[in-house]
Design a protein around this nucleic acid. Structure first.
Lengths: 340, 340
DNA sequence: CTGAAAGCGCTTACAG
DNA sequence: CTGAAAGCGCTTACAG
């Protein structure tokens, strides 16, 4: 159907071997004149390389497969931008595969689609793999790395934020603002990734440093979704057991914000909010949300780099506090409203 | 490296031909017993088909490449979900390629990555292709179809909403609510896709039916972005030349909403808003935005279907009005505030 | 610097 | 129902 190197060989009188060498730029194996003739012919005939053939014979590929959840992880765009950047710099190709919304067969489909062809490696963006699918991945003998979530399992390398530090930092920040009754909402502590658990630990550690023992109802777990935010706020209730809340994601933060408004609590005067992620969503709500901001772009960039260079270590990317409008300093009125 | 059909042939004593037939399920070409033996061996050896080889020999592929902008098109998830659904139903594979943010070389990279291998077809999600890249695509002799934007060029088939109807419907809706000074903000009328122009036409048509001639400053074009919304609202100013505004996308609507708040205008009492798209963003802002809601999931589903079945016609998916909290009925106070 | 030839892992007429 | 063989479009030792 299409134009092949054979056609170019015929057109130019060179052998397919020479044409191949020119076209895949095996420097030193051809003269400039030959190259010019072959390249001209290629353009003239509208040649396009069939990578299926190349991949078959070389048994490798310049393709990085990125597997992502189809759920609203509004930060994946930044991660992908980072991956794409590194890929461009190193002449790699990026294809993206949707793995559904924590759905076993969608995950498997994505994985299979990726593994069915030669691949440079696989990057998984906050995909919490089912055990069987993880086996599939491990067995495939293809380099892979997780991005934005971390694991205990030493076989599972990752680039992520230091989630313990995130929990710790957010809590310290609120403590410094005078808050003592600080909630944590919407983090997932059931997942096989230990992101949520780490954040919880960091949070507890910071509180402990200030001799505060969190009440049970200060911690409202969830799954990082908008709905988790709504539900958490309902649980907190309007009695204001807490004066500030750390939310597990921007969407949780917004859910909490909206539910609070519905309960006639106003942010930040009645309740302070610090959200984890710091994506554009923080800026398009009112008030804008103060966040522990993750460097998603860098995560992608570094993830791709480590995959390409076959680096084996885990890595953390930087986090920072972005002050916007959802946290208020509080002095002593903390204790006043305390119910217990 | 990996296990091949040759290994299975050796293991089972059958020829590679037979193994191939079983594994690719060429019914009628093998007995059940053979199938059982071969399949068992495949599982036992951990066989994984090398699609590069299959694609090379069959000269075709079950892969649908989806090309999307890396910008915040927050509806692409729904479209992709629709595509994925149809693909699953018909045993097709979906790979996604990011085409950057209206960037020539990113577009080209995405296109090339796709075209470099056998492909079932290409779906382009609101990608406004540069002329040269469009040539590349047309020349490639691979079926393709645009989703969510439409064109005049008969070679460019699409599945989208009827954008004229969107403009018309939104305007009619506001007219029915008593508004007479109605703005249109954030639509792009420069693009090669004529989405923006169509919406503008529909808007004008509806106004004309009510003998209203839009003032020049009622129409503030843009590029569907959050910033377009902010800027448009600044242009409208607080004098309230308009009593209601139709916004070209949810992000435009939110930008407008936030800028209006900053200008001490309250929605909907001072200004009504109808946004076009109706994604989840409409529900996470306060007040929630009334929208002309597009059926993105269906767009994806239908787009994939038409691509697969080689259907040549364009198609429109349904639109509907989703009433939330950003439009107020107005009786006569329209004219009072009018400046001119 | 160039070419002839083998081979990557599959599929599929053709013959039986 | 099964097998031998050709071939998809490339790459790359090997020989010159």
């Amino acid at each position: 159907m299409g134009v092949t190197i054979k056609d170019i060989a015929k057109e130019t009188g060179f052998s397919v071997a020479t044409v191949s060498r020119v076209l895949s730029n095996k420097v030193g194996f051809f003269s400039q004149e030959t190259a010019a003739i072959v390249n001209d012919a290629a353009v003239k005939l509208g040649y396009k390389k069939n990578m299926a053939a190349t991949e078959l014979v070389t048994q490798k590929s310049s393709i990085i497969a990125v597997i992502i959840n189809s759920t609203k992880t509004n930060f994946s765009d930044s991660i992908i931008a980072g991956i794409q950047k590194k890929a461009d710099e190193t002449s790699k190709r990026v294809i993206i595969l949707y793995a559904g919304d924590h759905d076993f067969s969608s995950q498997q489909r994505a994985l299979t689609t990726a593994l069915e062809r030669p691949l440079m490696g696989i990057l998984l963006l906050s995909v919490d793999l089912f055990a069987e699918n993880l086996q599939l991945l491990k067995a495939a003998n293809v380099p892979f790395r997780f991005i934005s979530i971390s694991f205990q399992d030493p076989e599972l390398t990752y680039v992520a934020s230091d989630d313990w530090q995130i929990g710790y930092l957010a809590t310290k920040y609120l403590l410094k603002k005078g808050h003592k009754r600080i909630g944590l909402a919407g983090v997932d502590i059931e997942s096989s990734a230990h992101t949520g658990k780490l954040r919880l630990d960091g949070y507890k550690h910071a509180l402990a440093e200030n001799n505060i023992i969190p009440q049970k109802d200060w911690i409202q777990t969830g799954n990082y979704s908008y709905e988790s935010g709504l539900q958490a706020m309902e649980k907190y209730g309007s009695q204001k057991n807490v004066s500030a809340i750390i939310t597990g994601s921007d969407l949780v933060g917004i859910g909490l914000l909206n539910q609070a408004t519905k309960m006639n609590l106003s942010i930040p005067s009645d309740l302070s909010l610090v959200t984890i992620d710091g994506t554009y969503l923080c800026k398009i709500v009112q008030p804008q949300l103060t966040s522990i901001t993750q460097n998603f772009y860098k995560m992608g960039y570094l993830g791709a780099e480590y995959l390409i260079t076959n680096h084996k270590q885990n890595a953390f990317t930087d986090i920072k506090i972005s002050e916007r409008g959802s946290v208020q300093k509080t002095a002593s009125n903390n204790v006043k409203n305390k119910k217990d």
